[in-house]
Design a protein around this nucleic acid. Structure first.
Lengths: 340, 340
DNA sequence: GACCACCACGAAAACGTTTTCGTGTTGACA
DNA sequence: TGTCAACACGAAAACGTTTTCGTGGTGGTC
């Protein structure tokens, strides 16, 4: 087992002082050409690499970004991470990832641990439990310590920090408008109960689209799924006695259950009924029929979040810079679950 | 912006020495009950937390595990990460994740950066490019430095380290045996070209299962997909003029393309033909029909890898401990793409 | 009262860097 | 030959910990 090379060892070996070695390696003009060459050659030969930890301690920055997400086994979040990673690496940062498992306590603990020097700033999508509890002391604390924080996706209005979100309402509107443009009249909505913020916002988009097109709202065409685990049955029951020519689902899963239910009723998608969904997964591409979707551009979200954070980190007087909220545009991907 | 509290500040505030503070907080018997209480109360009141970086430098360990995977936008890898994270957190480690994007250079760079003190050890699934290049100097280097390395999934035989793998051959055998037990006679195989190791191993399992059941090998029932991007067409062409009652696909995607192709031929899955696949994704659960699969237990792989690594990290004379290779058992999940 | 043990604490080194400030040597110049 | 600048380098502090060793004071024992 080879010992790692340090400045001290090089100094001893070449019989100069540590300072000289350090300066030589950083090409300081203070050191004569001769010594500099000698030291650099030696360092290169034995593959010297400065110790990150010592640098962190000295510079009081870790060049590390802490990312805390509700769960990692989720395609959408991995695309976001991917975006974060790309930008971060480009700028010489690395990324520590922690999952909160949607638990408030784990979110708090993770932040506290990482805040003790491991990380220069945070990118965060809050846990469900945190949203419900409305306890944000861990967030305000890191902000007070001067650590920049960027929230994405599930953000909290009251917290003053940079944010990256998508326009859920507009995305939903786009989806419904698309259906209207295809000639659909009776458009159903499968959403979640309102305290899930995306459900609420997307529902609102649905309503706005209807009203803008002068379509009368029919409450009976709206389902707010209560229990995710029971959603398949709920949806099947909901669709059994309705007559509609299109459905907008707020996520991939609901859309698929809807298609299943239609099939069982002997209806064909997209011939008899169109289905469109907000989505974040692979499923929509591969499913038969493939799904027409509103796409959330996770990778770009991650990239923007990382850019915001690094901007704050590298700006010395970021204190007085105002906070930004970046809105990522949703896109509509037309596939085979909607009629042409 | 509040300054972070340090031992030095506490010492100054309470007019004692830094050593006293440190000892008091660690409940050293050297310090009198009185002073100890006073210091602890103060620390608690102002929420003192030791600086991780300073500790890392002092202890020469970071309590951090570096994970390097080919890509993160991949359900299988996220399950592995999830397993790693759980075990690591339990034992007081955190996890730093880097992706190689299947690039050799990025893999090397990531390892080098993390090896400079940021990380105590590595969990790694090598990049495709690394497999092809057969250049493993970065791996041997970290090992030589005494950093433990655990490889999973895509491992490299020649490298001497702990490993966690699944038994691809056995898994494939299970799958084919299952089909045989259901009465299938003409079982097709959709695999990848042989230099992808999993393709090779799973093909081998297929062959073994056939021979064990005294089924004659029919080469024309084997497709080795050449170009992933063209796989849908290749598979459709392959299946167009064959007659088989079952197909074993080495991954989810191939299975779905197969089902699609059968459908287009007017064949029903599972009534006319059964499909079974190795899988790592969500897709198999949601697809219609849902897929019978061989499941790779990613989470357990991650957990085992983390356990192996931490064992090495916490064992002082791990030097002479032999390396282990843990084989994770595959499971068979019966769903609706195979006949009953 | 001399000696010793023990208590409670502090000084300093160490981890591996960077950087500021000194300092001894050289050479030029008057 | 004395003065001074420039040069090339070293000592030391600093980042925030932990830990070893030392030490001044107290009290007890003979």
């Amino acid at each position: 087992m080879k010992k790692r090379l340090t400045l001290k060892l090089i100094a001893k070996e070449l019989d100069v002082s540590i300072s000289t070695v350090s300066k030589a390696l950083r090409d300081s003009a203070e050191i004569s050409e001769d010594t500099r060459q000698k030291i650099k050659a030696f360092a290169k030969l034995y593959n010297y690499k400065p110790n990150n930890i010592a640098l962190s301690l000295k510079n009081r920055k870790s060049k590390t970004i802490g990312v805390i997400i509700p769960e990692i086994v989720h395609h959408y979040f991995t695309t976001v991470i991917s975006g974060i990673e790309q930008v971060a690496n480009e700028k010489g940062y690395h990324v520590i990832i922690c999952t909160s498992n949607n638990s408030f306590d784990k979110e708090v603990i993770n932040m506290e641990i990482l805040a003790n020097g491991s990380t220069d700033g945070f990118i965060l999508s809050v846990a469900k439990e945190t949203q419900q509890k409305r306890d944000y002391h861990h967030l305000t604390e890191v902000i007070e310590q001067g650590m920049p924080l960027v929230m994405f996706d599930r953000v909290i209005e009251e917290i003053n920090c940079d944010k990256v979100i998508i326009d859920d309402t507009l995305g939903a509107k786009k989806a419904v408008q698309f259906l209207v443009d295809k000639g659909c009249k009776n458009i159903g909505l499968i959403s979640t109960i309102d305290y899930v913020s995306v459900g609420k916002l997307r529902t609102q988009g649905y309503l706005e689209a209807l009203s803008e097109n002068n379509i009368e709202l029919n409450e009976s065409l709206i389902l707010k799924v209560d229990d995710f685990d029971e959603s398949e049955e709920e949806i099947s029951r909901f669709l059994s006695d309705k007559s509609m020519d299109a459905v907008f689902a707020v996520n991939e899963h609901f859309a698929i259950y809807a298609i299943k239910a239609f099939k069982e009723q002997g209806l064909d998608v997209p011939k008899d009924v169109s289905v469109i969904a907000f989505t974040d997964g692979e499923l929509s591409k591969r499913f038969i029929p493939s799904l027409t979707t509103i796409n959330q551009h996770g990778e770009e979200m991650g990239a923007q979040a990382a850019r915001l954070l690094i901007k704050k980190l590298e700006n010395d007087d970021s204190e007085d810079e105002p906070f930004e909220t970046i809105i990522i545009e949703t896109g509509l991907v037309e596939r085979n679950s909607t009629k042409r």
